[in-house]
């Protein structure tokens, strides 16, 4: 090929046009993700603004009664927040330490064979659809709880918290495991050569060294617990209530949204609009937690390289 031919090829308008249009198509696809974000925010803002025209945001955020189906309705979101918090804290108390312990075992103590057995099993646990956990809560966890503590209500926060804990456990374990593995082996070797026991190496060296990743995984897991819908809708009940008793029936923000939408609320009613207001709050909370996780990852980062 001569130089002129090459030059012609380079300047060929079909070639440039083709390249340009492909570039355009690919870029548009990437920009769609921004459209999604804008869409989510716009929809939540627009629909909840109609809601906030009827109910003042102050009443919404500080009211202690959530009875949008009553006449006159009362829209205080605190009982729903309390229910969500109960589930998140309860599942966190169970899943965060256990998840970290599993990660420490897998990363620091298990031999390769055990690791190869346990890891896929945790992945299976992570892949089970949430509605299955709801079923498990109702047919297994709740009967067990009621057998242990007979005063437990049929729908209760504890069963919800337990299955949500099972749900987020694999996530905590595998994210923590990743961060523990990222701690350089030389640190462990140095500690062992000074005579430290495996526990001292794990607790004193590796876990502090991986703190940023561990804390970030905790925040992300809690954020997932807050956004979880099906399991808590099935297990925790539909009674918005300001209570800290895990054996009572409660309602979370997500369960409320599921309840109203499966009841086919007509468009334009304050009931219909209230799910967008609750959704907006949920969106804001999870967005804040994701931001927090990124900050934590950044703030406590130990640079090893």
């Amino acid at each position: 090929m001569t130089a002129t031919q090459l030059d012609a090829l380079r300047k060929s308008s079909t070639r440039q046009w083709k390249e340009g249009s492909i570039h355009g198509v690919l870029m548009t696809s990437a920009l769609l993700s921004i459209l999604t974000t804008v869409g989510v925010v716009a929809v939540l803002a627009a629909e909840s603004s109609t809601f906030f025209r009827e109910v003042s945001p102050v009443e919404f955020l500080t009211g202690t009664k959530w009875t949008p189906l009553f006449d006159p309705p009362s829209h205080g979101v605190l009982p729903l927040l309390c229910g969500t918090g109960l589930i998140a804290v309860g599942s966190g108390i169970l899943a965060l330490p256990i998840g970290l312990a599993i990660a420490v075992y897998l990363s620091e103590m298990a031999n390769r064979r055990r690791r190869r057995i346990v890891k896929p099993m945790l992945e299976v646990l992570a892949g089970i659809p949430t509605v299955v956990y709801g079923y498990f809560a109702l047919t297994f966890v709740t009967p067990c709880l009621r057998w242990l503590i007979p005063s437990t209500e049929v729908f209760n926060a504890a069963a919800g918290a337990i299955v949500v804990a099972i749900m987020i456990l694999p996530m905590v374990a595998s994210l923590c495991d990743d961060s523990l593995q990222a701690v350089p082996a030389s640190l462990r070797q140095a500690a062992y050569s000074l005579g430290a026991t495996p526990r001292e190496v794990s607790v004193g060296i590796v876990v502090p060294g991986a703190l940023s990743g561990i804390l970030a995984s905790f925040v992300l897991a809690l954020s997932r617990a807050i956004g979880e819908t099906m399991a808590v809708t099935l297990a925790a009940g539909a009674t918005p209530r300001l209570t800290l008793n895990p054996l009572e029936s409660i309602q979370t923000m997500t369960a409320f949204m599921a309840q109203v939408s499966s009841g086919d609320a007509p468009s334009g009613t304050s009931q219909y609009n209230s799910i967008f207001a609750v959704g907006f709050l949920l969106f804001a909370i999870t967005l804040f937690m994701n931001w927090l996780a990124q900050r934590v990852l950044h703030r406590f980062r130990e640079a090893y390289e």
Binding site: A30, V40, L44, G227, T229, T286
Partner: peptide, 25 residues
């Protein structure tokens, strides 16, 4: 960079919120 951050944030949005988007849009 904004696109990347945006995509990772979208992955953390609870699935029920997408349901609200679908319902409205």
């Amino acid at each position: 960079r904004f696109l990347e951050l945006n995509i990772s944030n979208l992955a953390g949005v609870p699935s029920i919120v997408y349901g609200l988007l679908g319902l409205a849009v």
